[in-house]
Design a protein around this nucleic acid. Structure first.
Length: 708
DNA sequence: GCTGATTGTCTTTTT
DNA sequence: GACAATCAGC
């Protein structure tokens, strides 16, 4: 079969276009990713480009993985095409050029939690309170200043009021601290590379020769630093192929500049543009709603999406009495669709902000519908994962942030005062806290508790050197650090399961990579999320931002209330806030293939401290039809009743199992029942299987010791 | 000086 | 409903 089969005329043109600079404007659902991957195949097969000289840049790690898989299925292997996010690519560059940057090879990458630890230090130092100056505010201040090349010195000069002076001081402290511990935050990853290219022509030259072709996905969400890096790399000789949709710019709050894609032809006068209008994803009814809504954004390039499908089911708009009613209403629709043969995997719930998932979660859990939440508390942000990672970091980096966490979990009787003391002497001698502590231990003056901690860390280091296995090291740490005891004491089986899942991943990493522990630690800091493991049937819950690039048969868009979506703060803070919110709603709508449910509720909102009213976007999506009020929600049972029932009869007559039962599964082996839901059981199986939802009726499941 | 319990504050989106 | 500052007790 020819790789061009099944492409329409526009798509084919986009794949085959012959120009050094190409822009593809790809409307939602128009086969953007397919065009991009087919272009790569085309370059290799038809034009005999060296695959190793092709670089594809995606927006998320998820998208990068997706593209690699597609390439593999079309070419039988990825053939060495480099596919990566721009952040991951910059890490590679920095690891190679660390000397020119005055860094160490295994620099630390700070995530948000690490950044907050530094802010806490600064607040303590200067006596600031979180309530008078929030971390979030300071972090965005720091980020904004950094990406706009405003140095600490300049920030101090520019500060015109007390609050700004405080922020500048924290900024100062933060930057110093980063330099001290050889750490880079996400902004730095890009900034360092950009500065390197600005500074050294030799190094730039070297990297310009690394690839011949750059393909950039989601080009509408590129910010000015990313643009500069890409521009540097493309130089005068390489090709640039960008794909995007100005109507889907949803990251301008993070610096994304739509004008890079809009004005592409001005920047590259010899460039060619192909526009994909044909939508293959959604029904015409869904697209009508999307088109109507986005028309309210003036000053945009006109582009109406045309469906490939018929009009389909009408879009359903509802207004419920309160948040809880809304959740019940959504779940009832899900159950109805499910009973008609639809799979839960085909359903997704989208919302503006993470906290909006809560009411829905409660109801889903109560009615026993399996679900996964994307984002929210990310896997790597979980307490137990951070605990384990802090020990690994002590072995690989020994940085102060890892020390602060590992020394305090589990509690070892070493508290803030003691740490403060070590911190101060570390500052005075330009050493890490661990170095100071270790010297004290070596001199024999340290207290027994401190001594124990150092012995522990040193034994972990020795263990890693001896065994050279991250997985093995983790097992060792879990046993000897006291973490296992800590989790077992609180009966937090799930935490243990998560740590085991982490081990499974480390194992995979070791099999695929030769970068060792330091490389693993960096990888974890860089990857916000794990690749999804799809087993069984799940409804998916996520923010609209997280849904970018995905599609679902049925979409429930909940919390469509003024102030929530469009978000009040977004409108206040940014001049183009409302238009971006509208684009965000446009993205949400166009995720749906066949069915779209849009709901609002009239409950009291504590965040806004006012009664909710329906979002203006609802009207804009369809002004002919009026909003459909739904009264008298039938609740199969109230959450309270269900909770009571669980309490009164612990799984005696309606199920064979109850929580804490030891069970044996035909495929997954031994496990422990964590929770009993309406139709499923939540069971923690032994490593490497982890926690799974199993249907109660499943015949391959029995009590341990029960042979029937 | 450290730990665990309690109160108070804050919820926009992410690499 | 999470997380940090604060307080009381060991």
């Amino acid at each position: 079969m020819n790789y061009l089969d099944g492409l329409n005329k526009e798509q084919r043109e986009a794949v085959e276009v012959n120009a050094k600079y190409v822009r593809v404007i790809a409307g939602a659902g128009s086969g953007k990713t397919r065009v991009l991957t087919t272009r790569i195949v085309h370059l290799i097969m038809e034009r005999a480009y060296n695959p190793r000289k092709i670089c594809a840049i995606t927006f998320t790690n998820k998208a990068a993985n997706e593209m690699k898989h597609r390439l593999e299925s079309m070419l039988t292997s990825d053939m060495g095409v480099f596919v990566s996010t721009i952040h991951a690519m910059c890490v590679r560059i920095i690891r190679e050029e660390f000397e020119a940057l005055g860094l160490v090879r295994n620099f630390t990458i700070l995530d948000t939690a690490d950044q907050q630890v530094i802010l806490r230090e600064a607040y303590q130092e200067y006596g600031y309170q979180r309530k008078e100056l929030s971390y979030k505010e300071v972090l965005s201040y720091i980020s904004e200043h950094k990406v706009n090349d405003i140095s600490v010195k300049q920030a101090h000069k520019m500060a015109s009021n007390f609050q700004d002076e405080r922020k500048a001081k924290v900024y100062d402290y933060y930057q110093n601290r980063l330099k001290q511990v050889f750490a880079l935050d996400f902004d730095d990853l890009l900034l360092k590379v950009r500065d390197l290219f600005r500074k050294s022509e030799t190094i730039l030259n070297k990297w310009q020769h690394r690839f011949n072709v750059y393909l950039v996905d989601e080009f509408q969400d590129v910010d000015h630093i990313q643009y500069e890096i890409i521009d540097f790399l493309v130089g005068n000789d390489n090709e640039l192929y960008v794909v995007g949709d100005p109507d889907q710019t949803i990251y301008s709050w993070r610096g994304a500049k739509m004008h890079f894609i809009v004005d592409f032809e001005k920047t590259y006068p010899t460039s060619k543009t192909v526009t994909l209008h044909q939508n293959y994803r959604s029904t015409q009814n869904i697209l009508d709603s999307a088109n109507k809504l986005i028309k309210y954004n003036l000053d945009r390039v006109e582009k109406d999406l045309k469906s490939h499908k018929n009009s389909g089911e009408p879009v359903v708009f509802s207004n419920l009495d309160d948040e809880s009613d809304e959740a019940y209403w959504v779940v009832r629709q899900m159950k109805k669709l499910h009973s008609e043969g639809a799979s839960y995997l085909d359903m997704a719930v989208l919302y503006r902000s993470n906290y909006l998932s809560r009411s829905l979660e409660r109801v889903l859990m109560d009615l026993g519908i399996p679900y996964i939440i994307y984002g929210g508390i990310r896997f790597y942000d979980r307490q137990e994962i951070k605990d384990m990672m802090s020990y690994l970091r002590m072995v690989s980096h020994g940085d102060d942030l890892a020390l602060r966490r590992s020394i305090a979990s589990p509690k070892r009787g070493i508290g803030p005062k003691t740490l403060e003391k070590y911190f101060n002497s570390a500052q005075a001698t330009s050493k890490t806290m661990y170095e100071v502590i270790k010297e004290e231990v070596d001199s024999g003056k340290a207290k027994p508790r401190i001594q124990e901690y150092v012995t522990l860390i040193e034994s972990f280091k020795a263990h890693y050197v001896a065994k050279d296995s991250i997985e093995d090291l983790m097992i060792h740490i879990l046993e000897h650090s006291g973490l296992r005891k800590l989790y077992e004491k609180d009966e937090e089986i799930e935490r243990l399961e998560n740590v085991k899942a982490l081990m499974g991943e480390a194992k995979v990493f070791e099999e695929m990579s030769s970068e060792g522990l330091a490389g693993y630690v960096q990888m974890v800091s860089l990857y916000g999320d794990r690749e999804e493991v799809l087993e069984g049937e799940f409804v998916r819950l996520m923010t609209v931002h997280a849904s970018k690039g995905l599609e679902f048969d049925t979409v429930f868009l909940i919390g469509m209330n003024d102030g929530i979506f469009p978000n009040r703060n977004a409108i206040i803070e940014r001049q183009d806030g409302l238009t971006e919110e509208r684009r965000l709603a446009y993205v949400a709508i166009t995720r749906a293939m066949h069915r779209l449910y849009v709901s609002s509720n009239a409950g009291f909102n504590y965040v806004l401290s006012q009664r909710n009213k329906a979002s203006r976007f609802m009207q804009e999506m369809d002004h002919e039809k009026t909003l459909h009020d739904v009264k008298g929600i039938i609740r199969n049972e109230s959450p309270k009743e269900t909770a009571l029932k669980k309490f009164m009869k612990p799984a005696s007559n309606n199920t064979r199992f109850k929580p804490a039962d030891q069970v044996v599964h035909d495929d997954f082996g031994e496990g422990i029942v964590l929770a009993v839901n309406e139709t499923t059981l939540k069971i923690a199986f032994n490593y490497p299987y982890g926690t799974k939802q199993i249907a109660k009726e499943f015949s391959g499941l029995r009590l341990k010791g029960d042979l029937t």
